[in-house]
């Protein structure tokens, strides 16, 4: 506490010290996720001889990229105290539209832009329902989850769309400076999200809305407008994931992304975000997504049955949240 200097006649200048570097690190939302990541990483490295091979590690990052990208939009939604369950089907729908348009002879650029735009439109629809019609996000996105999945199946007739132009493979299989394209795309998405969340007013409003929506509204922030934007971003990142996965598989899969919304939520929560909103870090989400990826990979390498893998993953998520519960910023 500063000294009670209010007795002095001149305006007192209370001493304000900033928190020490160490205290700031420990209180950063990224701290515990990072500890968890390192712990799991070490265990996996000790148990599997192959885990630390450079090839394996880049594969892990690439496999984690899809969930990692989706989790960015999910982070925006969860930071505002909302949620977006429609991301998996929106990813699949955007991907199949891109594939369908290219198969029909459209230039890849146009097809990609159309697919991304579709994701944004879907997200904006979610956002309009949440922000202007004031419907609860969990119900809205549960409904649009079904709608998006259904539309994808109708569009494709239930079959994968293949026969895509070879150049399109770049986003899923290409490399930039020796790094696999999905990883580069993921890192770019995180970079943009980080800058938006930490260096723009909009980012501050995202946390403010999650922290206390009523207070944010009364202080003169246009809350509905920013919520609309948040869900539009979530739709966009789902569509970007759709781009990567479609390019990786070189086919539009209407059933892709089943259960991805849960993995994305897990990544955000493992990343230290409060599910009620207002608190969390986008870099934490990245750590959370990579934590899930090394878990999947490590358990696969160990030859653990897929059924048991789900149990182990669930248990680890519970443990992580138990450790991180009730922590204040």
């Amino acid at each position: 506490m500063t000294t009670p200097a209010s007795t002095s006649a001149v305006n007192p200048k209370p001493r304000r010290q900033r928190r020490s570097r160490w205290s700031r690190l420990v209180h950063s939302p990224v701290f515990f996720p990072l500890i968890g990541f390192i712990a799991v990483f070490i265990v996996m490295a000790l148990v599997n001889d192959n885990f630390l091979l450079p090839n394996n590690l880049t594969n892990v990052a690439r496999q984690g990229a899809i969930i990692g990208i989706i989790a960015v939009g999910m982070s925006f939604a969860i930071f505002t105290g909302g949620i977006d369950l429609s991301v998996g089907p929106v990813m699949a729908l955007s991907g199949t539209i891109m594939a369908g348009l290219m198969a029909a002879g459209w230039p890849p650029t146009v097809a990609v832009i159309a697919g991304l735009a579709l994701g944004m439109v879907f997200g904006a629809f979610n956002g309009a329902c949440v922000a202007f019609a004031r419907m609860p996000p969990i119900i809205v996105t549960l409904a649009t989850m079904g709608i998006a999945r259904g539309l994808g199946l109708i569009y494709t007739g239930g079959y994968p769309i293949s026969g895509l132009p070879a150049g399109f493979a770049f986003f899923g299989r290409g490399e930039v400076l020796g790094i696999q394209a999905p990883i580069v795309i993921m890192l770019l998405v995180y970079l943009v999200a980080y800058v938006v969340l930490h260096h723009t007013s909009f980012g501050r409003y995202v946390y403010a809305i999650g922290g206390n929506e009523e207070a944010t509204r009364l202080t003169g922030i246009r809350v509905p407008r920013y919520k609309l934007l948040v869900y539009t971003i979530s739709g966009l990142t789902a569509a970007i994931a759709g781009l990567v996965i479609t390019s990786r598989l070189m086919s539009g899969q209407p059933n892709a992304g089943t259960g991805f919304e849960l993995d994305a939520i897990a990544a955000v929560v493992l990343g230290g975000a409060a599910i009620a909103g207002g608190r969390g870090a986008i870099l934490g989400t990245l750590v959370g997504a990579m934590l899930l990826a090394i878990l999947n990979n490590g358990l696969n390498l160990m030859g653990v049955s897929p059924y048991l893998q789900d149990v182990v993953k669930g248990a680890i998520i519970l443990l992580a949240i138990y450790i991180g519960r009730g922590r204040n910023a």
Binding site: A208, N212, E214
Partner: peptide, 30 residues
């Protein structure tokens, strides 16, 4: 607590929330 403050925020973030645009340099970065 219910209508005024954003409780998880710091003092600084609570105070600047409704005039952030003043600190933008260069736009839109704070």
């Amino acid at each position: 607590k219910q209508q005024g403050l954003i409780l998880p925020f710091t003092c600084a973030d609570n105070i600047s929330i409704n005039h952030l645009e003043r600190f933008q340099s260069p736009k839109p970065f704070i």
